[in-house]
């Protein structure tokens, strides 16, 4: 029997086959699936904001791209993944509204995606596939058996990256 592990907002969990791991309704948030391409150990992170250093209220590390990815890396390694074999797939970072809140946070989705890419580049972990930006929400499901990240859009259109 395989289980579906659910990751909430500003949350992260570790998963191994035959289980799958999902996070529901990514809007401007970004989902980062990090996996060891040999053992199939994987983790999924759901971040909300790009940069922990720019915000005073930053005690929850999983809220931010920078500290969240550090925590994700630490957890997949602790679970037995090999750092040299790590790969990622990312999705999310949409702009749900065109002008609402733009003055205060800018295009937060785009900023989140940039921050995730910068952090992964800094850690030298490759991004094998991405489905980011645009203007729609996404539910993602990562399967550590096939290393496929399935994306489900509102209205049930589904594809894998």
């Amino acid at each position: 029997m395989s289980n579906m592990i659910k990751v909430g907002i500003a949350d992260m969990k570790i998963c191994q086959a035959p289980d799958k791991i999902t996070t529901i309704g990514l809007g401007s948030c970004v989902g980062v699936a990090m996996y060891d391409g040999v053992t199939g150990i994987c983790g999924l992170l759901h971040i909300m904001l790009p940069d922990s250093t720019k915000i005073a209220n930053n005690s929850n590390k999983l809220k931010f791209a920078d500290t969240g990815i550090d925590a994700l890396l630490e957890s997949v390694l602790a679970a037995g993944a090999k750092e040299s074999l790590l790969k990622t797939k990312i999705a999310g970072g949409a702009q749900m509204f065109n002008y609402l809140l733009k003055s205060s946070v800018g295009n937060i989705g785009e900023n989140n995606v940039t921050a995730v890419k910068n952090k992964l580049a800094e850690l030298k972990i490759p991004i094998l596939a991405e489905d980011v930006g645009k203007n729609f929400g996404r539910t993602v499901i990562f399967d550590p058996e096939t290393y496929e990240l399935a994306i489900v859009k509102a209205g049930s259109e589904r594809y894998v990256i």
Binding site: I24, G27, G137
Partner: peptide, 9 residues
């Protein structure tokens, strides 16, 4: 869109 995605704003 999905409730989760719009309420994440």
């Amino acid at each position: 869109d999905m409730a989760g995605a719009v309420l994440s704003v």
